[in-house]
């Protein structure tokens, strides 16, 4: 158990790694959600908040797509096509949007 504790980040463990670092969501949470019926990227995003952190899914969406494709047997391309990208692509403070 100590071996476990030492490899625990915050939620992830060595056998249940984090997929989405921004929102701290692990592989097993994703797999469970898919089995509960949240079986598109858009539904996973809304249910688990994966892909909705400061990096906007840049890191995790490809990983998520791969898990989803594996779990549902649907082609990776099809799974990826269903996700919408929402601007801005990098976080920008209100002051800059406001302008002068």
């Amino acid at each position: 158990m100590n071996r476990h504790a030492s490899s625990v980040t915050r939620h992830g463990t060595w056998d249940d790694p984090i997929v989405c670092r921004c929102e701290e969501v692990t592989v097993s949470q994703v797999v469970r959600a898919i089995r509960e019926g949240y079986d598109t990227l858009e539904e996973l995003k809304r249910h688990l908040r994966v892909g909705m952190g400061p990096c906007q899914g840049r890191t995790c969406l490809p990983l998520l797509a791969r898990i989803l494709s594996r779990e549902t047997g649907r082609p990776l391309g099809e799974v990826m096509e269903e996700v919408s990208i929402r601007p801005p692509l990098v976080p920008v403070p209100f002051e800059l949007w406001r302008g002068r």
Binding site: P54, R86, P88, V92, P93
Partner: peptide, 9 residues
């Protein structure tokens, strides 16, 4: 709130 960054719209 001016300092705060917009994540998504």
């Amino acid at each position: 709130l001016g300092q705060l960054a917009v994540l998504r719209q």
